[in-house]
Design a protein around this nucleic acid. Sequence first.
DNA 1: CGAACTGTTGACCGAGCTCAAAGCAAGTGG
DNA 2: CCACTTGCTTTGAGCTCGGTCAACAGTTCG
Lengths: 252, 252
Amino acid sequence: MAMPQIAVRRHDCHGCPLHALCIDEAPAGAALPVQRQPCLAQRSLRLSAGEHLFRVADDTARQLYVIRAGDIKLYQHGRDGGQHIVEFLGPGAWLGLESLFQPQHTAAAVALSACEVVVVPYPWLTALLDRQPRSAEAFAQMLSATVARHQRHAAMLRHTTALQRIAQFLLQRLELAGAAQGDATPAAPRASLPMSRQDIADYLALTASTVSRWLSVLRRRGWLVSGQRGVTLPAPAMLRRLAAGEVPAEPD
Amino acid sequence: MAMPQIAVRRHDCHGCPLHALCIDEAPAGAALPVQRQPCLAQRSLRLSAGEHLFRVADDTARQLYVIRAGDIKLYQHGRDGGQHIVEFLGPGAWLGLESLFQPQHTAAAVALSACEVVVVPYPWLTALLDRQPRSAEAFAQMLSATVARHQRHAAMLRHTTALQRIAQFLLQRLELAGAAQGDATPAAPRASLPMSRQDIADYLALTASTVSRWLSVLRRRGWLVSGQRGVTLPAPAMLRRLAAGEVPAEPD
DNA sequence: CGAACTGTTGACCGAGCTCAAAGCAAGTGG
DNA sequence: CCACTTGCTTTGAGCTCGGTCAACAGTTCG
């Protein structure tokens, strides 16, 4: 059985998160340029659940990270010992943007589950950015999207009730799961919650008690099935109405 | 009186906010390179108080802005009609970072006082970034600082009481005023408040009532003198203690 | 099986919001 | 110069949402 021999492996980096940044430079069958090397020579790192990737005030080691698999939470310390979760990050997300080209990290990152992260040294990044104009644009766009995302999250934390925040959070997790599946199952209302209730609370500026309370209410009403680290949402439409504040949020 | 004739005006752009980005390429008496041109050929814009620089969903026009003089507030619309102030920006600050290389603005910017802003078209920026490696780094650093700043602000809005937020805000305005004066008057405890009480409230995720109430308390206690658009803080040390939550925040 | 941890639920309480009224400053027109 | 308007600020009274504290249930791991 003579299989056709492939002249150039088109995409070793097809599933690579750097893809979006480095694909532009090789429009079609062009020879793989030098810059493509990072995609091939990736150095990756494995973390088990609970292990820190970096902590606050750690040296940045002049590198950042891209999550290939697993979930990571990015957090800061609140005055009172409680922690303030900046973001939950999944596969494809970049880590270390908040301290780019700066000596120390201003946040900490810890694995929620077993993770694989790709290491991206600054030199690789700058080389890419300098040699290839459009990549600088793409990277700037990603940074600005991060700014915009944080602005939206900050906005959500004001003028919204606990229930609204929880509903929005669930929807966010839901469409995140949907995007990962490539919309293959658009009607599968399953969302993963790899983080603890306390983590959810710290993300939404609530207490674990309150999160638990409202989740119970949703469960009692049938808007949410099952309870622990995964959840199915049979009525996303209703959740959307809750998130928008169209329902007065009765306790029971 | 024969004044010595200056051979080359060293820095036409000395007071220019782009300075930090473009100074590196001309270490010393080097001839002014082409890239320096933007500094000289700046197109600037004047706004009177209350005038919008851009609104949400406006076209970005592929340009961003740097404030040369005046104060601008950057805000988004909250669901309930109230507005959520992202940041107050003064001279030297960049505007439009949250929608960089994207078609539409995700926030609105309005002048609080008479302003002068410098227009920076994307092409200038990309030209600068592409030609000069260190500028890309500086720019990325600024973007990442913006991310970090928003993270800190979001962190402040949790686990802090109304009084703490107000104290922190006043201190922030104070050191901002100090920085503008180049620390010429380090002991001059004067801060400008070019925004309304409602704006302060929207920035701190409070109500105008609450802001007014606590400012009154501070005034009654003598930690704060005068009231309207400017304010003097005779006891910054006490404010710092309040901001840190070391004082139980008694109403009176 | 017990220990330690996470999640759930209840009772109470307080910080800040809502609603409302009055005080003040700046502008307008007679 | 003053009556009138308009918008911002201040202040009061009551109420509500979510936090605090605490007890209990369920899970994981030795």
